[in-house]
């Protein structure tokens, strides 16, 4: 099956370097701020057998943005658009984090020292119990990825992420 995704949903194409893309794909979804919208959203995913690997909701006064990590990004976007949701695919960085005290602050310090501003961040776990993953949204993915790798932090690309979910 070929899924048609309009180019406009893919943000910052400039950061995509063929064969060397260090980013992972997150789906951002508009949620109206009224009772039950998040539950309804989860139900839509469930109904279509889509597993949410990570979910983070940011709230403004009158609306929210759900950010989700799933196995099949394009299939999920198609499902959501059919259901009438406004959503987009956002390229973010996902880094591996040891599940131990100080791991998070170390990573944040690396970015902070170089003045890289975090738009938002959230963490998720997988079945591998000793590891946690951190999703990071910055303005310049490539610069941040290079910086983190230089400090020995493992940056996960989309292929690796899918492999992790497959395990």
């Amino acid at each position: 099956m070929i899924l048609m995704i309009p180019d406009t949903v893919i943000q910052n194409p400039a950061y995509e370097v063929k064969g060397n893309d260090m980013t992972t794909k997150q789906i951002s979804v508009f949620l109206e701020n009224k009772p039950g919208t998040l539950a309804e959203f989860c139900k839509v995913l469930q109904k279509n057998n889509i597993d949410m690997r990570a979910l983070c909701v940011a709230d403004a006064m009158d609306f929210g943005i759900a950010r989700v990590i799933v196995d099949d990004v394009y299939e999920t976007v198609t499902v959501l658009k059919d259901e009438g949701y406004i959503c987009q695919i956002t390229k973010v960085l996902t880094v591996e984090m040891k599940d131990e005290p100080g791991a998070l602050s170390d990573i944040l310090a690396i970015l902070g020292d170089k003045g890289i501003n975090l738009e938002y961040t959230y963490a998720f776990l997988t079945r591998q119990r000793d590891k946690a993953y951190l999703v990071i949204k910055v303005a310049d993915n490539k610069a941040a990825a290079n910086l983190l790798e230089a400090h020995g932090v493992k940056v996960i690309c989309q292929d690796e992420l899918e492999k992790i979910f497959g395990d």
Binding site: T8, V9, Q11, Q26, S28, F30, A58, D59, A60, I65, R67, I86, C87, Q88, T90, E119, Y120, K137
Partner: peptide, 9 residues
């Protein structure tokens, strides 16, 4: 609308 939407609040 998609034009108004972003992943950033």
């Amino acid at each position: 609308t998609p034009e108004m939407f972003s992943d950033e609040l």
